[in-house]
Nucleic acid binder design. Structure first.
Lengths: 258, 258
DNA sequence: CCAGCGAACCAGTTGCAAATTGGTTCGCAA
DNA sequence: TTGCGAACCAATTTGCAACTGGTTCGCTGG
């Protein structure tokens, strides 16, 4: 084997000076470092060498960088609860199903207790529509509308908002193929029947039955997802590319060996 | 009683012309109307009269307006799931407690199954801290940290994000007094004991016991909230002003009677 | 050949000023 | 009293400039 990782002389020099600067200077945690261009001239070294050194320190977790913002000491601050846009990057389908299994049976139970007659009318209508639709897109739309109507009928605005969050993540485009495969075939018919059962329980105000029916439905959906995820793919379907790591430092990489 | 609502002649005229313009013209649903100033001159009427007419149509649900954006046809679009900033305006404490009762027992159960030993160490430490603190602020902080640590230990990032959303709403400043009153007195000691029980169940990996203990805890918290909300206030505490309706159309109101 | 450098360009972020819009007040005139 | 125009206030959008890290390029000196 060749040398594991020979930093170039210049980068080594930069790394040393950078550590010295950060260790004994007045930089506090969380503070922004000077921009790379300035830092490079101050240390007396080129920007490329500096960036290699910064990359090392970022890998060590001592700094973090973001394009357009700057380079900061310490570890990347935790996500605030409100930035849900990229939640889909940090979760995965099974987590989502676990959450649905916690929330939607409760919604069904509440709906059975609090749904208005108008809600129930709409639910019955949706059940028909779902059963009558054959194309994949249509099924998905009606199914989604059905579950959301139940969530609305539960009459808890906060829980509805949470349902919407989960639903938006669930509908993420990158999981579209997954959903389609999980829904195909004979499973769809069972889903329709399960929907009917949930709605019937809600219409008859049987809270416990509604909760249980919804739970059984979602458990089957989860099982379908599991089956699809663990069974091999037919060759015709091209796999999605695996997601990139958060930082896209594809260049300026340290060279290994020769 | 006097006349119920005599629209002024000018406003009536404006309303008629506006309806005509909207009905037979090429304005599609969701489209933005021309600005009021332009619309006023085009119809050939003053802006005040136009605004009265627009107010009527807004009340009818045919249009909606927003300062700085414009006037739009159709009904106000539904809230997107991502704008959580004002969720606290649309919910209320009992809804929040209902949601917590759905989510946190599940979190406790998952935590019992998946918590690392490090998590459990932290939980035990937090239980001590909570018990040892006496001031209200401190209790609130430790309590919050305790519940969140359990949520973290559950190992479901999506559920954790949802917990954070609910927790942020729960901590809304306008409910601060409410929380303080609900926590006062002998209830606090029971809470500490309940926390201990939840943590013990998690530490011993008793999933069902953890879930049940958390549920009992939250039910007591909810009962405390109910008690506080239904019992009369001492006179010394000034009540918060009731929230304003969404739109602040306090002027240009149609005049009733004489 | 190549490690290192500076320069230039790309892309994401921030801040600010201007423009636009609905919301409101005011004075004037018929 | 009623309606109008003008002016101002406040929320929102838009465009731009400046600055940042990310990337590519060509040059230089060994």
């Amino acid at each position: 084997m060749s040398d594991p990782d020979p930093l170039t002389d210049s980068s080594n020099l930069a790394l040393g000076r950078l550590r010295a600067l950060l260790d004994d200077s007045s930089f506090d945690a969380g503070q922004r470092l000077p921009p790379e261009r300035e830092l490079a001239t101050r240390i007396g070294i080129g920007r490329r060498a500096l960036r290699r050194a910064l990359e090392v320190m970022e890998a060590e977790g001592r700094i973090w960088r973001q394009q357009g913002k700057g380079t900061f000491l310490g570890s990347r601050p935790a996500h605030t609860p409100t930035d849900l846009a990229d939640l889909t990057k940090r979760t995965h389908p099974l987590e989502v199903m676990d959450v649905r299994l916690e929330i939607e049976p409760a919604l069904a139970r509440l709906a059975a207790m609090r749904a208005s007659n108008g809600d129930i009318e709409r639910l019955l209508l949706l059940a028909e529509k779902t059963a009558a639709t054959s194309d994949a897109d249509g099924r998905e739309l009606w199914d989604s509308a059905l579950h959301r109507t139940i969530a609305e009928a539960a009459g808890n605005s906060l829980l509805l908002a949470i349902f919407d969050i989960v639903d938006r993540i669930r509908q993420d485009t990158t999981w579209r193929l997954l959903r389609e495969r999980a829904r195909s075939g004979e499973r769809q018919q069972i889903y329709v029947e399960q929907h009917r059962r949930v709605i019937a329980a809600i219409a008859q105000r049987e809270a416990h039955a509604a909760e249980q029916a919804m739970r059984e439905h979602l458990e089957l959906v989860r099982d379908g997802l599991l089956t699809v995820m663990t069974s091999p793919l037919p060759d015709s379907i091209d796999r999605a590319v695996p997601p990139e790591p958060v930082t896209t430092n594809n260049k300026d990489r340290l060279r290994h060996g020769t």
